[in-house]
Amino acid sequence: MGGDRAWYLYGVTRSDSLIHDLLERTRADVRDAGEALQALICGDLAAIVRPVSSEEFGPELLEKHLQDVAWLEAVVRAHNDVIAVFHRGRAILPAKFGSVYRSQEDLRAALTEAHDALVRQLDRLTECDEWAIHLYVDRDVVEQRVGEMYPELQRLREDVETARPGRAYLLQRQLDAELASATDAMLSDVALAAFERLQRHAVAGETTSPVRADDPDAEILRAAFLVRRHHLPAFLSEADSITDAGTGVRCEYSGPWPPYSFAAPGDEVP
């Protein structure tokens, strides 16, 4: 290992008598990163860390590494694997990827400063998982439905069919524009309604990416929800019921994830 030793932070959890059993289990479960894992205890908190070379995560090498998808994938997967083992047994706040501290003293000082806020956040996240939601629509299906829904669009369509060629062309352009804007409005209603339906079964929710429009099979919503484990059946059945071939809407999800999107004390978790 070249360079000085630095400390890679995976996450922060409660310090208690079980922490060392969990460390053992993680060492067994996660190859490579696992064996060097340590818990740095600070008050009621335990920071899950492993020693790395400061060179590997230093500015020059890191810039190269981050462009190397294979390196990044390995490190990101190890990051998630370690956090996931803890998450299955207890609440853990995943650290921002790439948090590498020069010394244990630096990390301890950072933990001490945020100690109470981190403990409160861990309490809020107990028995909760993050679920990722993707909502896709078949735009053609939605557009057809919109076209049938509005009488003025139907009238316009009839006018296009009966008008003379020049006028029909202009009317067709008007129809296309009105149909597209009515479809966009419908899609944002669909996304909002789906978000609200899922939110009812979740502790918190947030959208994680902008809408990708003008795409025949567009993703119209990408969101993360924090869901209490005993609400999970209701949440997933809501997600399944959003998928409807008749309306062209498809809801996909993945989870359970550690609470990446809800970990920071600033993240709103009631």
Binding site: A6, L9, G11, V12, S54, F57, G58, P59, L62, E63, L66, V69, L72, E73, V76, R77, H79, N80, L93, P94, A95, K96, F97, G98, S99, V100, Y101, R102, S103, D106, L107, A109, A110, L111, E113, A114, L118, Q121, E130, A132, T208, S209, R222, A224, S254, W257, Y260, S261, A263, A264, P265
Partner: peptide, 28 residues
């Protein structure tokens, strides 16, 4: 899980503790 979904979860989220962090978080 696929890499894109994984990166979406892991990369731009998580707790940031102030301190002497060697990686600039902005860089990530």
């Amino acid at each position: 899980v696929g890499l894109v979904e994984l990166l979406d979860r892991v990369l731009d989220h998580g707790v940031i503790l102030v301190g002497d962090i060697t990686i600039s978080v902005a860089e990530v």
